[in-house]
């Protein structure tokens, strides 16, 4: 079964990555990042059972905590940017270039 879980995890990760690449709404991009993190968590949990080791679950737990913190700060940043630029598109924040 581990193989199944890992394949599912890889699929979800790739879908999330593709979402990051093609979506322009910063909030949706953020959601895709969350999806990628969740895919990783699934792999961790699967490996924990495969190896008979609880540490995988502990790591998944930490990932969730860090992801929560990240979401809080990231969304605050998005709100701040939106407040000043009236736009939540990642393509509009492209001043740092040649």
């Amino acid at each position: 079964m581990t193989t199944h879980y890992l394949v599912l995890s890889g699929l979800l990760f790739a879908i999330g990555a593709m979402g990051v690449l093609i979506r322009r709404n910063a909030i949706v991009v953020f959601m895709c990042v969350e999806l990628m993190l969740n895919a990783c968590n699934l792999a961790f949990v699967a490996f924990a059972r495969q190896n008979g080791n609880l540490e995988g679950q502990i790591i998944a737990f930490f990932v969730m905590v860090v992801a929560a913190a990240e979401v809080v700060v990231g969304l605050a940043i998005i709100v701040t940017i939106f407040r000043t630029r009236r736009s939540a598109s990642v393509d509009d924040a492209n001043l740092l270039k040649y």
Binding site: T3, L11, Q50, L54
Partner: peptide
Amino acid sequence: AAVGFAALVILAIGNAVFAKEAGLA
């Protein structure tokens, strides 16, 4: 890129040989 990455990961997992799950007991 996404399809390629997924294909590579799945290929890797498919190639890997896992033992019987140890279980958490």
